[in-house]
Design a protein around this nucleic acid. Structure first.
Lengths: 235, 235
DNA sequence: TGTCGTCTGTATGCTAGCGCACGTAGTTGG
DNA sequence: CCAACTACGTGCGCTAGCATACAGACGACA
């Protein structure tokens, strides 16, 4: 089966820059391919590179009590990984793992910081993106506390569909359980419920979104809230 | 009963600045008194002032589904409110309400931004503080998901004791329930359990921490994690 | 001193999600 | 073609926390 990504050539943060800045930045980037489940950084470790996903997407997970975890961010071609470098701290705050394989642009931390000093527009954009990331982190915290697994799953599928730029992607129940901080069985039940309602189809990790509108209705308001937050600040 | 605050004269972020920068900043501040339960800003609204608590502390709450809420940050004299201004966005991301009455330093948003441009040290400190705030936000998200109310309450009491600079402070069960995103009855039970274990004493909103070490043992690891995060980045 | 409002304690029935264990269906590979 | 592995489905007993309701306790103030 083909993965059918409508791969985006570039990254929205970079696209928004003046042509000169953008070209300059691209000249410092290398094109790489991210592999599924690849770990790009671990909490507390040095950040060696920043990543601008183009056709891939990355999950930020905060580990808890050694074993469990909770996703606190999802980065597609609308964002970047390594943002915290611009706060003058070169330690990664979260676990970053590749959720959707595909192309990305990569840059060394040093090059990134140097470029950041050159382009005021880049700086401004990234600050805005950081603000949005914080808002979404808080939103996720609240969502995780108050909403049932089924709604949270629906939200996650929508967010992922947006970042995969495809109605098809691959992710197992075990993985989802880790991401959402619940048991695998909880995901199985929720996914089944969504499937019975003809919103998605699901077999051995291959997810297809069938009814996007229905899925939005099944999700909690957090999905919409996130989109609005993004649009208001970066739109 | 006296509130017995060992009131700190100043704010740690300001104290860490070179004397000149600090004086300059203080000259732009006004000394004010924050009242209990006072709302300093609402999500989506313009930020008019930034606040540096000295003897007071402030709770950041993200509202959810109109009614409920969840605390995503706690600001004492180790931090400040209005940090996001330095990201070039003048909209408040959260609800800020005064949790502990007392003195604070206040500055207009415009003055803050202007001063920020003058002092590189201030900028660097605040960026580091922002990084820590983000880490703690993620920690709170995970904590809220995985830890039981009793442990979360213990953590909150410790965090608050640190910021109140006193083993005595005032907060009702209803308030705590809102902050921790649980029912009031859940707080009642948890607080009772802690009281029976002689870790705190509690009557009509008047809390006294009796056994700090015991409380630390009763809390989840998140309290320690937060402190370590703060110490590593800002210590 | 009584009354009212605020704060805390307790009871009952309910549900989402947990831990554990086992069963089943596709997939891969010798 | 069989074995091993991966991924999904189900069942059972359990617990934390939910919603609601009501009762007692303390304090302020008339």
């Amino acid at each position: 089966m083909s993965f059918n990504h409508a791969v985006q050539a570039t990254n929205q943060l970079l696209d928004a820059l003046p042509p000169n800045d953008c070209e300059q930045l691209l000249s410092k980037c290398e094109h790489i391919e991210l592999n599924f489940a690849e770990v790009l950084c671990r909490p507390g470790e040095r950040i060696s590179h920043v990543y601008f996903p183009t056709g891939s997407f990355i999950s930020l997970v905060t580990p808890v009590d050694g074993k469990a975890g909770l996703e606190v961010g999802l980065i597609g071609n609308e964002g970047m990984l390594g943002l915290t470098l611009m706060l003058g701290v070169d330690l990664a705050p979260f676990h970053a793992l590749v959720q959707g394989a595909g192309p990305a642009l990569r840059m060394t931390a040093a090059a990134f910081l140097s470029e950041l000093g050159q382009s005021a527009t880049l700086q401004q954009k990234l600050k805005a993106y950081l603000y949005v990331s914080m808002s979404q982190l808080a939103q996720t915290a609240a969502c995780t506390r108050f909403h049932v697994v089924e709604a949270r799953l629906a939200r996650w599928l929508l967010m992922t569909q947006d970042r995969a730029h495809s109605n098809y992607f691959h992710v197992t129940h075990v993985f989802l359980a880790y991401i959402l901080g619940v048991r695998r069985v909880g995901i199985t039940k929720a996914a089944n419920a969504l499937q019975k309602r003809k919103l998605i189809s699901y077999q051995r990790g291959n997810i297809t979104i069938i009814d996007r509108a229905g899925l939005e209705a099944a999700s909690c308001g957090c999905y919409r809230a996130d989109k609005e937050s993004y649009a208001r600040i970066l739109g």
